[in-house]
């Protein structure tokens, strides 16, 4: 995002510029204080904590990289990484594909399309504990609606949430239900594609698939990029549904990294250890985001390039 300095460069006396700066800092003061108190300060303390054995019993004492080496040997930590990785690798691309597909369908000029748009966005507005509990009931092995529907097709559904093989699948299904936000961003992107481009391609005899492949997809790639980055960050911090629906179980089959972190921070009160987990999570998120950013010249197509051609 470019920060434009749109203010006209008027000739100002030095003191005038200084008063303006003072006012500017007063206006920005909530943000500056907020950054210091709730972001930068806590980050530094969190880093320091991660090198300490601070918990309910011990006072703050630096222990070097002890937390990190312990973490790497902990089986449950690797389990949580594995679960978060599987969830991200499946749910993020799946969500992108489904939301793009829906956005294309919703981009049509059909009567009543607004009703559909609202309906598909609705689950995003009520995502929370209530809906998580609803899912818990839906996936109930004996009385849940999913297994009843499967039963009508003579398929015996698994005991979703109590089955190590299926609990994570159930959570991924619930995540797809909430693709409305991503879908709407795609829809906004689609509506930004100039109609003349499509028309020109049509005159050149392009069929619908090649229109999609050579015009829609490239022009949407920056939106896809945006959704991908947000999707990764969101998926790696996935917490509420796992906490409410499965509680990390059965047998840690849905132990997401955020749930693992919660346990250490607020159940065992191992604050130093929890801080170390949060820094590993932070580094992973940074690394992945950087990777996506680095790879973007390969597949993200920007307006400015189009003008050059």
């Amino acid at each position: 995002m470019a920060v434009s300095t749109e203010a006209p460069k008027r000739k100002q006396a030095g003191w005038q510029a200084r008063t303006e700066a003072v006012h500017a800092y007063i206006f920005m003061s909530p943000v500056i204080l907020g950054l210091l108190l709730f972001t930068l300060g806590p980050m530094i303390i969190s880093l320091a904590l991660s090198f300490s054995d601070y918990n309910l019993l011990n006072d703050f004492k630096l222990i070097g990289i002890g937390n990190y080496t312990k973490l790497l040997q902990e089986e449950l930590f690797w389990q949580s990484l594995k679960i978060s990785a599987i969830y991200s690798v499946v749910s993020v691309p799946l969500g992108l594909v489904i939301s793009l597909f829906l956005a294309i369908l919703l981009n049509k000029k059909i009567r009543g399309i607004y009703v559909f748009r609202s309906m598909y966005y609705l689950p995003t507005v009520i995502s929370g504990v209530g809906v998580a509990m609803l899912w818990k009931w839906i996936f109930n092995g004996k009385h849940g609606i999913i297994n009843n529907l499967l039963g009508m097709l003579s398929i015996k559904g698994p005991n979703w949430l109590l089955d190590e093989q299926w609990a994570l699948v159930a959570l991924i299904i619930t995540s797809v239900w909430g693709v409305g936000g991503t879908m709407l961003i795609f829809l906004a992107g689609l509506q930004g594609i100039p109609y003349e481009l499509m028309e020109a391609a049509e005159i050149d005899g392009a069929n619908r698939w090649s229109q999609f492949r050579h015009i829609t997809l490239p022009l949407l790639s920056n939106v896809t990029f945006f959704n991908l980055v947000l999707g990764i960050i969101g998926a790696l911090q996935y917490f509420t549904d796992a906490f409410v629906i499965t509680g990390g179980g059965p047998n840690n089959a849905t132990l997401f990294i955020a749930v693992y972190l919660w346990r250490h921070a607020f159940q065992f009160l191992n604050f130093g250890y929890a801080a170390a987990i949060s820094w590993v999570l932070f580094l992973i998120v940074m690394l992945l985001t950087l990777l996506v950013f680095r790879s973007s010249p390969l597949w993200v197509f920007y307006e400015s390039e189009r003008k050059v051609k």
Binding site: M1, V3, M28, V31, I32, L35, F38, T39, G41, P42, M43, I45, S46, L49, V229, I233, L236, Q237, A258, L261, A265, F266, F271, A274, A275, I277, S278, W279, L281, F282, V285, M286, T289
Partner: peptide
Amino acid sequence: IFMLLLATLMLPGAVTLVPTY
């Protein structure tokens, strides 16, 4: 300051969780 503010959008909340608490 503005860029710093925007950068916090990418920061996982987990990092500041324990010290904030």
